[in-house]
Design a protein around this nucleic acid. Structure first.
Lengths: 201, 201
DNA sequence: GATCTAATGCAACTTCTGTTGCGTTAGCCT
DNA sequence: AGGCTAACGCAACAGAAGTTGCATTAGATC
């Protein structure tokens, strides 16, 4: 984003950094509902027209703010698939339990309901996250812990989905036990061969 | 809601019905992002101040519009737990595939991110839905298909979560195969005893 | 059917969001 | 160093969202 600009140096980059950081801070402070272009601009020390021109709307800001998050995450590697999945699921629980860590991912989910840019950002983010987390499963398949042909990403989805479901859909509380159970259920299903990708019966 | 009003007859009830129906129609037509108090009021043939006074905001409208949906739903009863779960999951897939049926539930999920009233409406709705769907599992436990002590609602959650996860979080496409796999995974996990409620190890 | 008053309609107003035209600044290039 | 111009700041504006005070309507009660 803003990569093809004719003047990428100095001020433009500074403004961009300041605005995205301000977006993050505002999200943590007021959440998606309280996110305003004007507030972000003021916090960033930038005029609101600048923000409107470069990001168009709050959804553009949010979509942009998510980008960095995907890259710097590495999956656990405990040697046991079950433990790896449990770590992944309980880490999710921990993130959603912390308002500060939760702010950005939650905001993007909300923004995706009204902005195709946010949808694209979400797809890219979770595609990346899934691919990284799937390494855990791929290693397990190589160790012979799971049936050959098991879809690694599907195991990851099954591990994460129940946590998201409770947090964002049914609004039920989550704790480590929820994550653990999701991980174990995904594991059992994978072992039983339910998540073999060819299986389209 | 509006139950304790001092004048429940005639006009008040008519206005309420007209407004909720208009809310539904507007949601289908423009989605949550395009939902405006003024548009709803105009469509309902009511002045906007009336809507503001009785529902306060769009989130109030949405929370109210969800209420009727919970009551009139009965779970399948095919005689086989696997088939019941598959029906539940693929029915979800079908609902989310139809913009008209999808509009209201999606709107409430969005509204819940910024309105505690919508959160309460969501909790009530899914608590009711889960309880009804859980009958399917309870019957299976009685038939001896699942270990005693299996948490029926947890089986339902595990069946539905992957569909919601793809639709609302990762924005991946869903089809019947997705629902079928989710149902089978939940079933396998339940059979293995992973979803026994006592189990807090 | 006359009265009372909750609920609605109406209009004006304030506030907030987003836009536009133009002047100014600062990065890039020779 | 000096010019060129993209990017930014500024102010004024347009439009929508939500509020308030008061008049009007129509259910309820006797």
């Amino acid at each position: 984003m803003t990569a093809g600009t004719a003047r990428p140096g100095g001020r433009t980059a500074r403004v961009r950094a300041a605005v995205l950081q301000a977006t993050y801070a505002e999200l943590v402070a007021h959440g998606y509902a309280g996110l305003t272009v004007e507030n972000v601009a003021e916090r960033a020390g930038v005029h609101k027209t600048t923000v409107y021109r470069r990001w168009e709307s709050v959804d553009g800001l949010i979509a942009d703010a998510l980008e960095p998050g995907a890259a710097d995450w590495t999956p656990p590697d405990t040697g046991s698939l079950e433990q790896d999945l449990i770590v992944i699921a309980t880490e999710l629980v921990r993130v959603f339990g912390d308002p500060e860590q939760r702010a950005v991912p939650e905001a993007v989910v909300v923004a995706a309901f009204q902005s195709s840019r946010a949808v694209e950002a979400l797809r890219r983010f979770y595609a990346s996250r899934h691919a990284r987390a799937a390494q855990v499963v791929t290693r397990a398949i190589e160790r012979g812990e799971l049936p050959a042909g098991t879809d690694p990403v599907e195991v990851v989805r099954l591990t994460c989905a129940p946590v998201f479901y409770r947090v964002f859909i049914t609004r039920e509380p989550v704790d480590d036990a929820v994550g653990r159970r999701a991980a174990q259920a995904a594991l059992v299903a994978a072992r039983a061969g339910v998540l073999v990708s060819d299986q389209n019966s």
